[in-house]
Design a protein around this nucleic acid. Sequence first.
DNA 1: AATAGTCCCTCACGCAACGTCAGGGTCAAC
DNA 2: GTTGACCCTGACGTTGCGTGAGGGACTATT
Lengths: 257, 257
Amino acid sequence: MARYTVKQVAQMARISIRALHHYDQIGLLKPAHTGENGYRYYGREELLRLQQILIHRALDIPLAEIGAILDDPGFDRLTALESQRTRVAEQADRLASMLRTIDRTIAELKGDRAMKDADLYSGVIDSQKQAQYEAWLEEKYGPEIKPEIDASRGKMDGLSEDERRAMMDELKSIEEGIAEGLRKGIPPQSHALDPMIARHRDWVQARWGRSAPVSAYAGLADVYLAHPDFVARYESIETGFAEYLATAMRSWAGRQE
Amino acid sequence: MARYTVKQVAQMARISIRALHHYDQIGLLKPAHTGENGYRYYGREELLRLQQILIHRALDIPLAEIGAILDDPGFDRLTALESQRTRVAEQADRLASMLRTIDRTIAELKGDRAMKDADLYSGVIDSQKQAQYEAWLEEKYGPEIKPEIDASRGKMDGLSEDERRAMMDELKSIEEGIAEGLRKGIPPQSHALDPMIARHRDWVQARWGRSAPVSAYAGLADVYLAHPDFVARYESIETGFAEYLATAMRSWAGRQE
DNA sequence: AATAGTCCCTCACGCAACGTCAGGGTCAAC
DNA sequence: GTTGACCCTGACGTTGCGTGAGGGACTATT
């Protein structure tokens, strides 16, 4: 039987050990079994329950309520889901309007500023570019802990199975589009690939958690080629694909000023 | 001059009066002016600042940090807003996909109410995992191979179809073995994984073309975690697999001296 | 001018969901 | 048997407010 310690569970679910203690304490998630030594041991059942808990928690439902939902066998999930739907929809609306507000503000700022501080501005951006690129190179061979790692990992945290899958679908579709170009004999530098490459960059950026400069994206191409796992996976899509993609990325980045 | 009371501001911004009191108290947002009677009066400036505060807050940034950001004289509004935009957009995407998930679940519940909730739920998750894994396998072996347009620089060059396939089989088998360990609850630091990790390293070295130091292999673990493509692909094998593999690699490398 | 209704203030305690030590056992491997 | 990594239980700290309590202030009507 699978038997997981707190740390293992915490790592799998990407939550803290303290959170597990807490859930135990409030009776939301108790270990399958407690050892002589007082250690908590969780089984597959508990992992599933934890997954449910985390899904609910992502919807900002208080823990006590989650417990009530999960423990009440007569609870009407349909009604619950429908009310959750409206809650999520409301939040989505709020974010959408926030986006519009931000866009408007950006437009204003741009109109105001682009003329004045253009030089000073690009200077700032350049130093950022440099820092980013150095970070990547360092990461290639220096096994130290970097904020990039946390950021990237943090991005996958709290994602549901569905979201993960949606991400993979998106990535697969992008890669397929680019591979199509390769099969058709379109040169990697061609503008025809631009939309696909742009999508790929968007995907990477979304995973990255923040908007990185174009040069960092170009630097990724080197990382691709430098690592065997990467090359192997890309080559399995289509022979020559790793090189093709890398060239396309670099070319695209070069064209973006 | 526009002059708003707490209630007016609260209504416009859709936050509580208490929140305004709080922001005042911690010095995050002070009224433009305080009346003889002690009443707080806010102006246009404050409304704008409040808007920024709320955007940041929506991104789960602690209030203290928000204050630091907004008060930083080097604060670049345009850059900040642009990065905020992408972050907000990501959250919106997440919510959208969550909505789809909920809708699908609702549809299923409506269509087949007789089914037990737990079964339905775990069934969905399991079948998803399965589908994802199959998709991944398909992706690995599915597409045709055209050696013609070969860029002749990739590491897999000069290998026959059979050799390539053997290589991918080997990698798949290694990964499966390690994923087994994860599923069984074997801690990633365990010696039990050593044979698998050693095989993995051999595989990597073979691809690398030269024998690299152990530290380089350990560094690869960081690259795995730092790169979204990698994490995504590994996570599609098994939830938590990326972290698990990386930990195992580092642990193994640490022990090789 | 009194009354009512609504608004405002300042304490000040409460709460959720953990974070973060402190102090002390346990376990696995050399 | 000694590391070093892991586990436990308190117990207090933190964030971002919610929720009264107790008491002035504004506005409108009678």
